[in-house]
């Protein structure tokens, strides 16, 4: 049985949690104060994911870039691959909040969406 100490990043509370892992399966989580913490610990110990936020270039917008986010958290090890794709993207203004900028980025099944108007 492996025991891991974790700081939850699900919200700014940052709960200190302890997860017990048996054969690659999380069997218990303590220290969390909400169900999101338990979910975070289980994911973190098996296949860690992170929300990705960055900007992409805009053609003809109010600003040269518009902020975007991954609609859901992406696998941690694919963050830099996603950045590589997003650094090449140029979108045409106008952009609205929620517009899909890249579909299924790096085959993660996750879309990149705009988080501001431009």
């Amino acid at each position: 049985m492996e025991v891991r100490e974790l700081t939850c990043v699900a919200c700014p509370m940052g709960c200190q949690m302890t997860a017990s892992i048996d054969n690659g399966v999380v069997v218990s989580v303590t220290g969390n104060t909400c169900p999101r913490g338990k979910k975070y610990a289980e994911t973190e110990c098996t296949h860690p994911v992170r929300p990705l936020t960055t900007t992409v270039k805009v053609d003809g917008g109010k600003h040269p870039v518009v902020p975007v986010k991954s609609a859901d958290a992406v696998p941690k090890e694919k963050m830099f691959d996603c950045m590589k794709v997003l650094n090449e993207v140029v979108v045409k203004a106008p952009v609205k909040i929620g517009d899909v900028i890249v579909e299924n980025i790096c085959d993660t099944g996750i879309n990149i969406v705009a988080t501001n108007i431009c």
Partner: peptide, 10 residues
């Protein structure tokens, strides 16, 4: 829900 700054402001 978890929003970005611009989304919260919007």
């Amino acid at each position: 829900e978890e929003l970005s700054g611009p989304e919260y402001a919007a």
